[in-house]
Amino acid sequence: MRLRSHPDFDTDPLPRSATLRGFALTPLTPAEVDEDFAAVTGAAHVLKNMFGPWPAGLTLTENLYDLAWHDREFAAARSFSWIVRDKDGVYIGCAYLFPEMGRRGAAHGFIWIIDLADRVALLDQLQAELSDWFAATLPHPVAVAWHRPTA
């Protein structure tokens, strides 16, 4: 079954990779399953309640399926997911843009950073940089409602 793209991104999907001022966005694909699984399970206490009960009890196989789904959605221009890396290339979190289905010009942005001492400051910086990047990159204005861990 072929997924249909979101109408906001039919002709202009977002880049798979990007370099922001303080971060690099790289593809969140099945090839990164080991690295992603280590980050997600290591940050489970940070992610608690951000996406319902996930990642409680997450297995490597389930994570592989999740990454394959994210990859498929990205390829279809339906939703967009990236690994967030610091300037040294270290995996420090993820960013997602989920356009609202059945509505144009609106999306939900989710960001999380592993449990670092300066995590809240990094989240603020990442959200600001992503907001700037989306404003310059999105095919037309999209209002992004931001979500991030409260823990």
Rank of each mutant, 00 (worst) to 15 (best):
A106M: 01
P53V: 09
V84G: 02
H70Y: 15
K87Y: 03
A107P: 01
S81Q: 08
M50P: 00
R85Y: 07
V84M: 03
P53F: 02
E100I: 07
A76T: 10
L67I: 11
F80L: 08
K87F: 03
E62K: 12
A107Y: 01
R85P: 08
H70P: 05
G57L: 04
W54A: 04
C94T: 04
F51N: 05
L97T: 07
F74C: 04
R104I: 02
L97V: 07
W82K: 09
G57T: 05
G57V: 04
M101H: 06
L58Y: 06
G105Q: 01
E62L: 12
R85Q: 15
R78I: 05
A77K: 08
G102K: 00
W69K: 13
L58D: 06
N49W: 02
Y91Q: 11
Y65M: 11
P55H: 02
M101E: 13
F98L: 12
C94I: 00
K87S: 14
D88F: 04
M50Y: 01
L97A: 06
G105H: 01
V90R: 00
C94V: 01
E73V: 11
A106Q: 01
S79C: 11
A77R: 07
D88N: 14
T59Y: 06
T59M: 06
R85D: 12
G102S: 03
L64D: 13
I83D: 08
P99M: 03
N49I: 00
S81L: 03
L67Y: 12
P55I: 01
P99V: 05
A95G: 03
D88L: 09
E100Q: 07
G93N: 04
F98M: 08
Y96M: 06
P55G: 02
R78K: 14
S81C: 10
T61F: 06
R72Y: 14
D71R: 12
F74A: 10
Y96E: 11
R85N: 13
L58N: 07
P53E: 13
Y65D: 15
A106C: 00
G102D: 05
K87G: 08
E62A: 15
A68V: 06
D66F: 12
I83H: 13
T61H: 10
T59G: 07
G102I: 02
G57W: 02
V90S: 00
P53Y: 03
L60P: 04
I92P: 04
G52R: 01
D66T: 13
S79L: 08
G89D: 09
F98D: 12
P53I: 05
I83K: 11
S81F: 13
F80H: 09
F98E: 12
L60E: 10
D86F: 08
V84Y: 02
P55F: 00
A75Y: 09
I92D: 08
V90Y: 00
N49T: 04
T61I: 07
F74G: 06
C94G: 13
L97N: 05
H70W: 15
Y91E: 07
D88M: 10
L67E: 10
D71K: 08
A77L: 09
K87T: 14
C94N: 09
M101F: 03
V84I: 09
F74L: 04
R104Y: 00
N63T: 06
N63D: 15
P99A: 03
H70D: 14
G105L: 01
V90C: 00
M50W: 00
F74Y: 11
A75T: 14
D66G: 11
